[in-house]
Design a protein around this nucleic acid. Sequence first.
DNA 1: CAAACTCTATACCGAATGGTATAATAACAA
DNA 2: TTGTTATTATACCATTCGGTATAGAGTTTG
Lengths: 188, 188
Amino acid sequence: MNNRETISKCALELFSKRGYDAVGIQEIIDAAGITKPTLYHYFGSKEGLLKAVLQEHFDKLYSNIKKAAVYNGDVKTSLQTIISAFFKFAKNNRTYYRMQLSMWFAPSESDSNKAVSSHNAKLFSLIEDVFAAAAKDHGNMKGRQSLYAATFLGMINTYIGIFFNGYSDLDDKFVQTILHQFMHGIFS
Amino acid sequence: MNNRETISKCALELFSKRGYDAVGIQEIIDAAGITKPTLYHYFGSKEGLLKAVLQEHFDKLYSNIKKAAVYNGDVKTSLQTIISAFFKFAKNNRTYYRMQLSMWFAPSESDSNKAVSSHNAKLFSLIEDVFAAAAKDHGNMKGRQSLYAATFLGMINTYIGIFFNGYSDLDDKFVQTILHQFMHGIFS
DNA sequence: CAAACTCTATACCGAATGGTATAATAACAA
DNA sequence: TTGTTATTATACCATTCGGTATAGAGTTTG
């Protein structure tokens, strides 16, 4: 592993554990065993480092969800596929997803939230599009894509948070639970 | 309004908007129009200030939820009352609830999360107790109080977050939605 | 070999951080 | 009036913050 990767990895771990604002550059370079100019050579600034770290992992998440977020005529199947994709990613990238989750809920004018907000918007519109497409077959869903997407993502993240806190595993039974809950909220 | 209250109010607004770590003492005293020794006289430290601000508002929230979290034989009614209590409080204390929410999702080793974790635990056990009591009438709920409480609180906070982001209002119809969704998750 | 480029270390910068020692002011009780 | 206590301001502290100027080393290219 080269210095750039080492820095990125250490930064992710520290940001995820203690938060972006609370972690100083000094701490990162100590953990990575390098010096400041090396970090600034690769990332330019603390903010640049955060953005780079986010980008790396988000790209993976985005492509996974993009593959999953396809409406083929059956809402239930689509949503189930999406939930599974999120769960799988969260399990395989716990440190990153923890950080992303905390930044998503961070104050709107914090650097953390600003850094993830565009990513979240991209993810959001992916989900929104599914509901928009499904609205053609289900008239009662029309004009509610945004609300549905927000609710759906909120529930997914709720369950991932519960998983992180050890209250449950993210197994197939859980996928069914969230799916049923959500569908019942929509169609009743 | 005396100096102590002014400081507390300004700190809440700044913490809620930009996050605890990102806000410096200097900024708070500038906003409050006082000087450092005054702040340190009343609160002792930055952490003491945070704890005091949290305590003030949490006490109100806790007593509201405590009144609402009573099981009288009907799960649905109990949960509905709890949801309404949360929604009402969130609407009337937006700034505070926003901050609490961000701190609840903050990294586990951050000062923010440490400061709210004990409060959250108190709230959590209030809800847990309701499910534990209800389990006497519904055998299938037995031993799952923790999971149910986590899910239930997660859904409530999801909807409050959606409300904060402007996707919906927290009206009675919304209470019904979350209630049905949750109940459907449990009893199916 | 020499020039150019990439990467990294020493040593430093000004500004901001959380926090405090000292003392003045004000209110109040004896 | 005098002593006491609570409250506030001036001025300061050591440390840490994010960031950089300079230059040495390693490798590549001409």
